[in-house]
């Protein structure tokens, strides 16, 4: 039995049937189940505004990275360098803000300096994205190797910029606005930024030509080329986009931690990939949604948070998070396989 056996059916399916077969539906159900279980066990501490507020804040940076990662994985590629690019962007941004401030102390810097910092962070992230893109698309080096290379190189350059230590001063204004400020109704600004970015790039992926080309290249690059899509150019742009988003994430991380966290973010790349894949995006390319990525990123986050709150021993947490990761993807694949057999 292969997928070729069943002829494509043109009949219109009901909303319910379409919902049940949607890639994101089941994984969303897993997320919902986790929230229900933890809420039942610890209603006073898990099911609180504070807890969900923190959950969203702590996931915001990773979500921005994972949105970029979704594009790359849909093209059938991978980007391991995002964590290092994030640190590089934060570092060069922080250094720029220190250079522009009197006495190299950016603590009291104003909005002019902060805006410059943002521009530099985005430019820095985009630069590494462009390097990745050119090496993958034009030099035809496998993305795994290219981004493994830039993973080390970006961190190396970031370390060179400040002798391998964290930058000491980050503008307080940045901390109090982007890092910890809130809109009306206590919605954290960091979350607002992440949501806006997610919605914008969700629309880009699912409603624009850029998005359609991304899917087309992931499904079959040769077919895309023959259909007249500039594959080389488009692929470069996709990696550039991932670097651009890692740059924004770097600036967000800087605002939140008030530190360039040079020895952190080592597993951001794997966490982002795990979130994207759990959200139903195929590692082989051609399939994926931003909504799935959002859900996929939140599953480990909710698990960690819930386990911490109900006081599960740390060692068990590692085992459980790993097991849920693998199980979620396995169920998803089983479901698809049985669907394809029909």
């Amino acid at each position: 039995m292969t997928t070729l056996d069943g002829l494509p059916t043109a009949e219109r399916r009901s909303l319910g049937a379409r919902l049940l077969s949607a890639n994101t539906f089941w994984i969303a159900l897993v997320l919902l189940a986790l929230i229900v279980v933890f809420s039942a066990i610890a209603p006073e501490s898990f099911l609180t505004f504070f807890n969900f507020q923190q959950l969203f804040i702590e996931t915001a940076v990773l979500l921005v990275i994972a949105v970029g990662m979704t594009f790359v994985i849909i093209t059938g590629g991978i980007d391991l360098s995002v964590g290092s690019v994030l640190i590089f962007a934060g570092m060069i941004s922080a250094k720029t803000m220190e250079w522009m401030s009197p006495g190299q102390d950016a603590s009291n810097a104003g909005w002019g300096v902060i805006t410059a910092g943002l521009v530099v962070a985005i430019a820095g992230g985009s630069l590494w994205g462009l390097i990745n893109g050119l090496l993958v698309a034009r030099a035809n080096i496998p993305p795994l190797i290219v981004t493994l290379g830039t993973l080390g190189a970006a961190l190396g350059v970031a370390s060179l910029l400040n002798d391998g230590t964290n930058v000491r001063t980050v503008p307080l204004e940045l901390r109090d606005s982007l890092g910890f400020g809130t809109l009306e109704g206590n919605i954290p600004n960091l979350v607002v930024v992440a949501v806006v970015i997610t919605v914008i790039f969700g629309l880009v992926l699912h409603t624009t030509r850029f998005g359609r080309y991304t899917f087309a290249i992931g499904s079959n690059p040769e077919a895309a080329r023959r259909a007249g899509i500039g594959v080389t150019r488009h692929l470069t742009n996709v990696y550039l986009l991932t670097g651009f988003l890692a740059g924004i994430a770097g600036f967000m991380s800087l605002a939140y931690f008030q530190s360039t966290t040079i020895s952190g973010h080592t597993t951001d790349n794997l966490n982002a990939i795990a979130g994207v894949v759990m959200g139903g995006t195929s590692l082989f390319g051609g399939i994926g949604t931003i909504l799935g990525t959002v859900i996929g990123v939140f599953i480990p986050a909710v698990l960690q948070k819930g386990f911490n709150i109900i006081g599960v021993q740390p060692y068990w947490q590692m085992i459980a998070v790993g097991a849920v990761l693998v199980a979620a993807v396995w169920f998803d694949q089983q479901r698809r396989r049985s669907q394809n057999k029909r």
Binding site: Q54, S259, N308
Partner: peptide
């Protein structure tokens, strides 16, 4: 640092 932050806010909740 991100995990440390998350552990602290979880502890504040619980």
């Amino acid at each position: 640092p991100s995990v440390a932050a998350q552990k602290v806010t979880a502890a504040i909740s619980s």
